[in-house]
């Protein structure tokens, strides 16, 4: 995957994620409606590649206003990832040389790998995660399960033990997939299924779309580092 193609694909996928997020605010309060209508317009302009670099810069300024409006991300980790993608795209466009453009886009790929590796690490060092107890707590009393019937999973400790270890092992082993394009593609398909399950069970749909938007960066970096070597 070429740098230009990966960058363009990221722009389109990020715009799609931003449009989905922003439409949800159109029935909200006036000030939210204005901010997110503007975001939809800018995202559409980015999809059609209309002065992309400047549109991304405007999206970044708007993101700062939205961050200030909600005194933090509206939707936690998903919005933070959106900001990270946006900042890396912005830097990749405005960096003075191709070398620094690649560094900026490569930083997004690096953070994507860390997003899995660190989440796996912080879980595996916690005895509650290793025993399956933590995931049981998530189902039993956390805010996330989208329906009461899903809380019933808390009564299946063996299943949750297997699920906990599946998640931890996948997250910890994710960096190893970088050694070949094929293994990376398989890992990204598994990761997509993981985010899809999280979206269905915990209502974290924003994570699904914005994480996918970062995938071209890792596909590009993998080929840049391992195929060029």
């Amino acid at each position: 995957m070429t740098f230009d193609y990966a960058l363009r694909l990221t722009e389109v996928l990020m715009s799609f994620a931003f449009i989905l997020q922003s439409i949800e605010h159109l029935k909200s309060f006036n000030n939210e409606r204005i901010l997110f209508s503007l975001r939809i317009v800018l995202s559409v302009l980015l999809v059609i590649d209309f002065y992309s670099a400047w549109v991304i810069a405007l999206l970044f300024l708007l993101a700062l206003i939205i961050l200030h409006r909600f005194q933090g991300p509206y939707n936690g980790g998903a919005d933070r990832m959106g900001l990270l993608v946006l900042v890396c795209l912005c830097l990749a466009h405005f960096a003075p040389t191709p070398y620094w453009q690649e560094i900026a886009f490569g930083y997004l790929a690096l953070q994507l790998v860390l997003s899995y590796l660190i989440s796996g690490w912080v879980k595996v060092v916690n005895p509650d995660w290793r025993s399956g107890r933590a995931l049981r707590d998530v189902f039993q009393f956390s805010t996330y399960p989208v329906s009461d019937s899903l809380r019933g999973f808390a009564d299946s400790p063996r299943l949750l033990f297997v699920m906990s270890w599946s998640v931890m092992l996948f997250e910890l082993l994710f960096p190893l997939s970088l050694f070949s394009t094929e293994s990376l593609v398989v890992a990204l398909v598994i990761a997509t299924c993981f985010h899809f399950a999280n979206a269905c069970i915990f209502g974290l749909n924003r994570f699904f779309w914005i994480w996918i938007a970062a995938y071209p960066s890792i596909l590009w970096l993998q080929q840049r580092v391992f195929t060029s070597a």
Binding site: P73, R80, L83, I118, S119
Partner: peptide, 12 residues
């Protein structure tokens, strides 16, 4: 957002 901690669900 620029230097994320990525500590999702580290403890409940």
């Amino acid at each position: 957002a620029l230097l994320p901690s990525w500590r999702f669900f580290d403890f409940i």
